[in-house]
Design a protein around this nucleic acid. Structure first.
Lengths: 264, 264
DNA sequence: CTTAATTTGCACGTTATTGATCGAACGTGA
DNA sequence: TCACGTTCGATCAATAACGTGCAAATTAAG
């Protein structure tokens, strides 16, 4: 069998079987494992397969994308932003926290020694704080919405109306170049607005990937927030906003981040 | 099995089971616990899972269930009881569900085609129902209590007062030989009582290990319930109760359940 | 048929993965 | 709070897989 033909056949074989070992290929094509390795090396250079210790995987296999996409959704980026946001919290403050993955990261970064009281309508926020001793958590009850997961209903509004919090941390899933914050969910957009009303100070928290997008439901304008916390991937020159609003931006640095797990 | 494939398989396994122990994974994949730890470390760096002392949790559903209770208490027993309890639910009913591991099992066994509305103050219950399409969930909001995890406060009482549910499923952590239900938590004991008041029919759900124990806070007497659901490990002759109350007992069979070998 | 070029297989040093050990860290219950 | 049992992680040794160099085998060209 010609070399080139065999390599093509190996590529097909890997594609069909998704996962193969070097030994397996060696037996299948009656050549030494050394030859198989050389073949796999070539095929990998062509991008046809992906090598791994012990064998090879088909290049575009679903397993590759499947689980890994979730991991790469800026998990460390959100953590950096969350850490920066947590710095703004003072002792014994009552904090309103919005719904979203960045807010979940914020919940995990909360200082436990300040005696904070956290108020939220997000299930994920509460889950993140289940083990957080030293943090008082109040969950606004209501009907469970599944995507995204949060609680809504008149009792959420009532509670927020009768509440005076120190700070509200609002997540933004869409932030236009003109500085307009919108959200894809009409109910949570309304809850965000009420949270802002109920707090003395309002913080907008977002990562730079949200800039330049818009959703259906208006939440607020950039000038309605006291502080805007964002990562250092933001291109400030692209924003068509006044200098007064620019001064509200606080940039979280992502350079010194290591993948070392939590120290608590 | 290739290293990378195994790690992906572990990620999938964790995702499906929500909670796994290192020992469990070690046996499942026939590798040492040390290797499992190394795999889990990698997977955590990728953000695919969350590690805990003793094992790992799926990253998405971060319900921090105590690993030990899940691993040591007979989970399948609770499941059998839960399945029996679920049989009592009818179409479009509004159901109050109490807090506890058996109640969590009940939440996971709920029929999704009946159009049920579930009302609870338990975090674990909501977590169990996060993916339950077809089940309407209302969470009674309030302050988060950490052990056990539930929400309490005046708004819980208010909501229950203005509510008329079809059925209430109450968990019992202590059931004396005389048929007195008590609870270790004073707040949740009060919430149990109010749940019973708010429902047309009341169901007590417990496993036989709870019999013969008492806690500080009175909840109710056996005669206050319409139905008492228990597993077949109960020794009915040990109970000093009237025949009228005995007739309320419904025994869930665990006969066809293969029990998990306890590797302690 | 001869020779050069390429490919293959093998030996051997290098690297990766695994399992065992043991002190440290963690969580639990008294 | 303390002591106890369990789990964790750094380290080492063993095994398996890898890659380079070289010689043998095969193919292509003259």
């Amino acid at each position: 069998m010609l070399t080139e033909v065999r390599q093509k056949a190996i590529a097909d074989y890997v594609l069909r079987n998704d996962v193969v070992t070097t030994t397996q290929l060696s037996q299948e094509f009656n050549v030494s494992e050394m030859t198989i390795r050389r073949d796999l090396k070539k095929l990998e250079e062509q991008g046809l397969i992906r090598r791994t210790h012990g064998g090879a995987l088909s290049a575009g296999h679903s397993h590759d994308i499947d689980l890994r996409t979730r991991a790469t959704t800026n998990h460390l980026l959100k953590k950096a932003i969350a850490k920066k946001a947590a710095e703004f919290m003072g002792p014994h403050e009552t904090i309103l926290i919005d719904v979203g993955s960045t807010m979940e990261a914020l919940a995990r970064e909360l200082p436990t020694s300040l005696g904070l009281t956290i108020v939220t309508n997000g299930i994920m926020i509460v889950n993140a704080l289940l083990d957080a001793v030293g943090v008082e958590v109040y969950l606004l009850g209501g009907s469970l919405q599944h995507v995204p997961q949060f609680l809504m209903g008149p009792s959420v509004f009532e509670k927020l109306q009768n509440m005076q919090a120190d700070k509200a941390f609002i997540a933004s899933s869409a932030f236009s170049f003109e500085g307009v914050v919108t959200d894809s969910n009409v109910h949570q957009a309304e809850i965000k607005r009420r949270m802002m009303k109920a707090a003395a100070q309002t913080y907008l928290v977002l990562d730079s990937s949200k800039i330049g997008h818009s959703s259906l439901n208006f939440v607020a304008r950039a000038e309605d927030f006291d502080v805007i916390i964002i990562d250092d991937g933001v291109d400030m020159s692209a924003l068509k906003i006044s200098d007064g609003i620019r001064n509200k931006f606080v940039v979280a640095s992502t350079h010194d981040i290591t993948s070392i797990p939590d120290s608590m």
